[in-house]
Amino acid sequence: MTKLRELAHSRAGDKGNISNISVIAYDAENYPLLLEQVTSARVKALFAGVVEGDVVRYELPNIAALNFVMSGALGGGVTRSLALDAHGKSLSSALLDLDIDDTPQQ
């Protein structure tokens, strides 16, 4: 078992009430592991209580990256949010704490 942080880096961006978080494999060899385990369902579950809407995952195999687009994630929108981090810039750090099972397949 390891943490996503060991395998990937990440950046959060904001538009209105939507947050997007990229997850980029340090080593493209680990991209299949990310595809398999960093699912939109897991991301949605992780951010329960923060993200009110859907989580959609886009895949970018050329750069071994995933892009998660989370609706209703920014307290009603960056420009009106009551949150301390209205942009949700810190959300990527929570995602990198996700557990990843990296035991080699038999």
Partner: peptide, 16 residues
Amino acid sequence: AQTCKEQLLYEVHDPK
């Protein structure tokens, strides 16, 4: 390459 990849997806929704 890492800084460029992070910025490529910054504030992007559907990359297509």
